[in-house]
Design a protein around this nucleic acid. Structure first.
Length: 593
RNA sequence: GCCGAUGUAGCUCAGUAGGCAGAGCAGCUGUUUCGUAAACAGCAGGUCGGCGGUUCGAGUCCGCCCAUCGGCUCCA
């Protein structure tokens, strides 16, 4: 038993080894791809070609833009090179020789220039292709795995928009054909779940060119999902001692001067509008408003902590090319809150937020990963404050027995933070809760409280969100559940399906009873055959389809079909209502108790 | 914003060589009244993303603009 930890270590090591092998294989595949590209375009300038989580890429400066047909040809040639089994050979060369050797490759020259003086410069050669590379590589080109080229995209040299735009070819490589197929199927599955596609198919939301890019129109069904999430969110906050506040959507320039947003955040703020000669801004953040509420009165240490929560709608400028469905928008509603407390209350307050975050993760069925970001190089606030706040964050995490990873220097300039990433049912990461300690705003707004000693003290401030924004969160939910929301969130929970016209009246009476019992119900009283009605219900991911015909009308029953394709047969209406309400009240992810 | 691609009916898409704008699904009307994932027939539906240009004639060719999609973070 003593060896459990050791066993775990071995597993971690094995996992790391596997990842390294995969990266080695993929990076080697990128070299083979570069050879194929260079054969096709002898004048190509090579940039970099690393392995990434999903495969690999290589950036090229080419005489013309690539087409999908080019990719087919390049992939074909890669397979030939792989079949020929050329050995990867490493050699080291002095810096001046490297400069001479890569004299026609400006990007490689720049890379060499940036290498530290004492760095060994190495090349890898296979067949006719030589690349500046640290390695490592697989032994020969036959070991690059099962490769598929995926897409071509623009990418700035070194990610810098002031530098040349290169062409990047993305590919993936896997040890076996089967793993490649599984990966491609996961890609398809992700496409099938895309919230933009499901948003249209399930009539949840849309974006109108005439309203404007990056601005979400919530249709009744999507709005219902959002409403239910918000209601749950609000109830939980009230239970946990938060006070709800509302702050305006626009505010005068003065406040953003004082908060510092005009200095540090103006890139994301819209141009001001003129109100009787004074500039007003659309609010990009809710914090200044909450601070003003805190400052509207003298606060005693006995009043603290104060927790202001707002489903606050903010508007931020995002560059047109970065917009993405509901996930990256220009106007969105945060489930925002600011906690004002004494420094000695920080840890407890942070623990409270963690508790809430963990509860939400559980209810929505997300796994999660936690990151603690510490003081960056450029920062404000005293070393003692940073130390105390960072300790409060980590102690709060420890008090909840939560495992976390420290990200040194990744905190905001105004304070350390905890970032929690939700992992959805496909294992993909989503922005989750964040908890930030803020040293900046209390200073700028002189936010304080009267202590036991009768003196003024600087208040401690926590900025936190649990769901992020309603747009991003609901967009994430759509993909997480592939549109099949748990019953408590389903916009339509039950679809009553009369078999023939003569059952219409009974169907209506069933629907009325269910509505009275609090369920969201629709009746499909069209002249389609039952099969067609069920099909529509299935495609709309309605959890319960209630078929009613002669037998059911006679027995005061409904025949319950679940969207999981299970047919439960006839059930007294009261039994169905009891079951459904149990599922709904418990926010179960199952369809039946 | 930048690179590339795309934009035709509510949705998915076809449209050949520049010569009267099409299909399936959805919608509407009628027939059918049916027991667990698509009944049958008919009808209607379009500023071909927008603006400008070339042409006798533009969905098709050219220019500008808008929007959408894939990227621009994973650093030999």
């Amino acid at each position: 038993m003593a060896d459990v930890a050791e066993e775990m270590d071995l597993q971690v090591e094995a996992k790391n080894q596997k990842e390294m092998d995969l990266a080695k294989m993929r990076h080697s595949a990128s070299h083979v791809m570069a050879q194929a590209v260079l054969e096709k375009f002898p004048d190509a300038k090579l940039a970099i070609g690393p392995a990434i989580d999903t495969g690999f890429y290589y950036d090229f400066d080419l005489p013309r833009t690539l087409t999908p047909e080019d990719l087919d040809g390049i992939e074909q040639r890669m397979k030939e090179i792989a079949a020929e089994g050329h050995e990867f050979q490493r050699d080291e060369i002095p810096r001046d020789e490297a400069v001479e050797f890569f004299k026609d490759q400006p990007y490689k020259l720049e890379l060499i220039e940036d290498l530290p003086d004492d760095e060994v410069i190495s090349r890898f050669t296979h067949d006719s292709f030589v690349d500046l590379c640290r390695g490592p590589h697989v032994e020969n080109t036959s070991k690059i795995g099962h490769v598929r080229l995926l897409s071509v995209a623009g990418a700035y040299w070194r990610g810098d928009e002031k530098r040349p735009m290169l062409q990047r070819i993305y590919g993936t490589a896997w040890p076996t054909e089967q793993e490649l197929e599984e990966f491609l199927q996961r890609l398809e599955e992700a496409q099938r779940r895309d919230h933009r596609r499901l948003g249209r198919e399930l009539d949840l939301f849309s974006v109108s060119e005439e309203i404007g890019a990056g601005l979400i129109l919530w249709h009744p069904k999507g709005a219902m999902v959002r409403h239910l999430v918000e209601r749950f969110e609000t109830d939980e906050h009230l239970k946990r001692g938060y006070n709800i506040v509302y702050t305006p959507h626009i505010a005068s320039e003065a406040i953003y001067k004082r908060s510092g947003h005009l200095e540090t955040y103006s890139e994301n703020m819209y141009k001001p509008m003129d109100i009787e000669g004074s500039p007003f801004y659309l609010k990009p953040m809710n914090c200044p408003g909450h601070v003003m509420i805190f400052n509207s009165d003298v606060r005693s240490y006995r009043d603290l902590p104060v927790r202001y929560a707002e489903l606050g709608t903010v508007y931020r400028y995002e560059r047109s090319g970065t917009l993405h469905g509901m996930l990256r928008v220009r106007g969105f509603t945060q489930d925002d809150a600011h906690i004002f407390c004494r420094p000695d209350q920080l840890q407890g307050e942070i623990a409270g937020v963690l508790d809430l975050a963990m509860y939400f993760a559980e209810v929505f069925g997300y796994e999660f990963e936690i990151f603690l970001a510490t003081r960056p190089e450029k920062s404000i606030g005293s070393a003692e404050n940073w130390e105390a706040a960072t300790t409060a964050l980590s102690d709060a995490l420890k008090s909840k027995d939560l495992v976390y990873k420290v990200e040194e220097g990744e905190g905001a300039f105004y304070g350390p933070k905890i970032d929690i990433k939700f992992l959805d049912s496909l294992g993909r990461e989503w922005t989750g809760p964040t908890i930030q300690v803020d040293f900046n705003l209390p200073e700028r707004f002189d936010a304080n409280y009267i202590g036991e000693d009768g003196n003024r003290h600087r208040v401690a401030m926590i900025h936190r969100t649990v769901l992020g924004s309603m747009e991003r969160f609901v967009g994430g939910l759509i993909e997480h559940f592939a549109g099949a929301f748990p019953v408590w969130l389903a916009p339509v929970q039950a679809l009553v399906v009369p078999i023939a016209d003569r059952h219409g009246e009974y169907a209506m009476s069933v629907a009325d009873r269910l509505r009275t019992a609090g369920l969201r119900v629709e009746v499909d009283d069209g002249s389609d055959r039952m099969q067609a009605k069920i099909r529509r219900g299935q495609m709309q991911q309605v959890p319960y389809m209630l078929v009613v015909g002669d037998k059911e009308a006679e027995a005061d029953a409904v025949a319950v079909r679940l969207r999981s394709n299970e047919n439960l047969g006839a059930m007294p209406i009261d039994d169905f209502v009891g079951n459904a309400n149990q599922v709904i009240e418990s926010k179960s992810l199952e369809l039946m108790p």
